[in-house]
Computed example of a mutant assay.
Amino acid sequence: MQKTKGIIAMICIVGLAGCSSSHSGPGGMHKVDWYTAHPKVAAQEVKWCNNNAPRKVLAACQNAYQAQSDIATKQFFGVPKGGIQVTGSPAAPMP
């Protein structure tokens, strides 16, 4: 009976080891918007992802990459103020 409990406990431990968060990086698994709001964590996540080629395909890595791209785009172009304003006359009507 004691041996059976030990075997069951070992199976549970090994089974739960596959459920660890090691596949979601040091920042955990977050959406792109969250990483965009937390650029330091996104940078840590990207560093972790780039450290091992197979990690790059993980959803956590893809979200962190996209967030860093969004952050860089906003820094380059800036935040639009008031949107696009079109001036001038409308195009001539089609005959």
Results as ranks from 00 to 15, higher is better:
residue 95 P to K: 11
residue 7 I to G: 06
residue 10 M to K: 13
residue 75 Q to C: 00
residue 30 H to D: 00
residue 29 M to A: 05
residue 87 T to E: 14
residue 7 I to V: 09
residue 11 I to A: 15
residue 62 Q to E: 14
residue 68 Q to E: 14
residue 18 G to C: 07
residue 37 A to P: 00
residue 58 L to F: 13
residue 86 V to G: 01
residue 82 G to Q: 07
residue 28 G to K: 04
residue 88 G to C: 07
residue 65 Y to I: 06
residue 36 T to Q: 12
residue 2 Q to F: 11
residue 23 H to P: 00
residue 83 G to C: 04
residue 12 C to S: 09
residue 59 A to Q: 10
residue 64 A to C: 06
residue 49 C to H: 02
residue 88 G to W: 05
residue 43 A to K: 10
residue 74 K to D: 14
residue 44 Q to A: 06
residue 14 V to H: 06
residue 69 S to T: 12
residue 39 P to N: 13
residue 6 G to W: 09
residue 13 I to C: 15
residue 58 L to V: 03
residue 8 I to T: 06
residue 64 A to W: 01
residue 66 Q to Y: 03
residue 80 P to E: 01
residue 29 M to R: 05
residue 48 W to Q: 08
residue 74 K to S: 13
residue 87 T to H: 13
residue 22 S to E: 09
residue 91 A to I: 11
residue 46 V to F: 01
residue 68 Q to D: 06
residue 11 I to L: 14
residue 57 V to Y: 08
residue 38 H to W: 03
residue 71 I to K: 03
residue 4 T to H: 10
residue 45 E to I: 04
residue 67 A to Y: 02
residue 67 A to K: 02
residue 67 A to V: 03
residue 45 E to Y: 01
residue 58 L to Q: 08
residue 31 K to G: 08
residue 88 G to A: 07
residue 66 Q to T: 15
residue 11 I to W: 04
residue 82 G to T: 05
residue 36 T to L: 10
residue 74 K to W: 00
residue 72 A to G: 07
residue 48 W to L: 04
residue 79 V to M: 01
residue 28 G to E: 04
residue 67 A to T: 03
residue 33 D to L: 08
residue 72 A to P: 00
residue 26 P to Y: 01
residue 20 S to I: 05
residue 16 L to F: 15
residue 86 V to Q: 09
residue 40 K to E: 15
residue 87 T to W: 12
residue 32 V to A: 03
residue 95 P to R: 12
residue 45 E to H: 10
residue 72 A to T: 15
residue 29 M to K: 05
residue 21 S to M: 10
residue 76 F to E: 06
residue 88 G to E: 07
residue 34 W to D: 08
residue 91 A to K: 10
residue 29 M to P: 00
residue 70 D to H: 08
residue 18 G to E: 02
residue 42 A to D: 01
residue 27 G to K: 01
residue 39 P to E: 15
residue 71 I to M: 01
residue 50 N to M: 09
residue 76 F to N: 02
residue 44 Q to I: 02
residue 95 P to G: 14
residue 48 W to V: 06
residue 64 A to G: 08
residue 86 V to L: 14
residue 41 V to L: 11
residue 58 L to A: 07
residue 3 K to I: 11
residue 60 A to E: 00
residue 15 G to A: 15
residue 47 K to M: 08
residue 14 V to I: 14
residue 8 I to S: 09
residue 35 Y to T: 02
residue 90 P to W: 08
residue 4 T to P: 02
residue 62 Q to P: 00
residue 3 K to M: 06
residue 59 A to P: 00
residue 56 K to F: 01
residue 14 V to N: 07
residue 50 N to A: 04
residue 73 T to R: 05
residue 74 K to A: 15
residue 33 D to Y: 01
residue 70 D to E: 10
residue 63 N to T: 01
residue 22 S to R: 09
residue 13 I to W: 14
residue 17 A to R: 00
residue 27 G to L: 02
residue 89 S to V: 14
residue 76 F to S: 11
residue 27 G to N: 03
residue 38 H to I: 05
residue 84 I to N: 13
residue 36 T to I: 12
residue 69 S to A: 09
residue 53 A to C: 00
residue 62 Q to M: 07
residue 2 Q to E: 10
residue 51 N to F: 08
residue 81 K to G: 04
residue 95 P to W: 02
residue 44 Q to K: 13
residue 28 G to F: 08
residue 83 G to W: 07
residue 4 T to R: 13
residue 46 V to H: 01
residue 61 C to K: 07
residue 44 Q to W: 13
residue 94 M to K: 12
residue 9 A to G: 12
residue 5 K to I: 09
residue 74 K to I: 11
residue 8 I to E: 08
residue 37 A to D: 12
residue 17 A to H: 08
residue 34 W to G: 02
residue 40 K to N: 10
residue 2 Q to M: 10
